[in-house]
Design a protein around this nucleic acid. Structure first.
Lengths: 220, 220
DNA sequence: CCAATGATTTTGAATAGTCAAAATTATTTC
DNA sequence: GAAATAATTTTGACTATTCAAAATCATTGG
């Protein structure tokens, strides 16, 4: 069994490589991402290599092996299923679930994970709208971004509303945020928690980040 | 935050002291219970003392402080709520849940624990029939034992059937295992998984350990 | 092409938890 | 009450993970 630390390193490397679209990840990024000193990342990386989870090129960076990618995807799956459970079943707010899932994901057996998945009805997306990897480590490579992550000043097409509640769906329809609609993010301000939008050529309006996160748009 | 290791030691000390009915617990018992060398128990005990979780008398043993007892009860609560969840909600078998709960209990925040408790309808007993401590660390000091734990060759009164399913309750009624009945465990054989019983002065019969565990009797 | 800057690696040390085996202390038994 | 036995404590060592700071390597602007 890999230790929780090993799992976290692999998860971070996977996340960074997906984020960048490049397989190779540098020590600095890992260290920053995990909140650890650079030297620690280097030495831990060597441990990962010994366990054949990554391939390491000194002064270049690390790349996950097939085994590493599998472990990483497994962690992502655990994490997202847990987040879904925390929100859907226990009614926690999506702002507070990340840290909780972070702890629990290392303590969850394969069996309990599968039962949880079944109990939740084999969800495809977590509460943030991120796709949940399948058991064999494949991720539905949806090129969707939510309105907090997508490019600004460029029109995109609404593709998915992740909050299926009546209330939110009604709100979205009133605003014209329906699948197929053309939407452009004009500006985002994290302090005031506001996202300014325009549907097609209509008058701009503002919604909160909580709502913006639930609207996914296509982004090539 | 106490480490998972600290939590396990405190839990073990609490379990042993309750089991024996004596507050003070020896190093050997702890070491055996936790599957660790005796010297390890001694040194860890000193760590617990530094954190004011136990009071340690060299060559005598340890006693939990109020703080230690509170932590221990908290762990017992976590453990039993988790077991209840694993059985009631995810449908795992009670034979496989102990180890699972053992892992998860260290990763569960106070908040998630409370939500889980609420979701389960604030249960008072776990699937084994053990009482779940309240949030302030009080345990319903029921002097109940199940038929696997109670003294043999002595008549006791049936007080609780922990499996509330129709099927099991019908089975129990047919056998005369109803609250108030006088029952005596004649013999127990773990290999054949059999428990031989007699109700009052009637003819003895045999039931399996799974069933025996669901029947609680008063035991002073 | 070479000095400055930034990233990475090495080194030496710390902490938590563990073990085996030797030393010590308690408890029984006669 | 002394010898035998059992339990406990001490000692020295090991692993995993971490840090700070020094040393080294890589890149890039002039």
């Amino acid at each position: 069994m890999p230790s929780a630390t090993v799992e976290n390193y692999v998860k971070e490397i996977l996340a960074l490589s997906m984020e960048k679209g490049k397989a190779q990840v540098g020590m600095g990024e890992i260290a920053r991402g995990l909140g650890v000193a650079p030297g620690t990342a280097t030495s831990m990386t060597k441990t990962l290599e010994r366990e054949k989870l990554v391939q390491y090129k000194s002064h270049k960076g690390v790349t996950l092996t097939a085994k590493g990618r599998k472990l990483g995807m497994g962690m992502l799956r655990r994490h997202r299923i847990l987040e879904t459970f925390l929100v859907e079943t226990l009614g926690l707010d999506w702002t507070e679930i990340h840290g909780e899932a972070e702890e629990l994901e290392h303590a969850l057996s394969e069996k309990v994970l599968d039962r949880l998945d079944k109990f939740l009805g084999r969800p495809e997306f977590d509460p943030h709208g991120d796709p949940i990897p399948t058991k064999d480590g494949k991720i539905a490579q949806s090129n969707m971004r939510n309105l907090l992550e997508c490019r600004r000043q460029v029109a995109s097409k609404v593709t998915l509303i992740t909050d299926q509640g009546v209330e939110f769906l009604n709100f979205a329809r009133r605003k014209g945020l329906v699948p197929g609609a053309s939407v452009e993010v004009i500006s985002r301000d994290l302090v005031s928690d506001a996202v300014e939008l325009r549907i097609g050529k209509t008058k701009p309006f503002t919604i909160g980040s909580k709502a913006a996160r639930k609207i996914l748009v296509a982004s090539s």
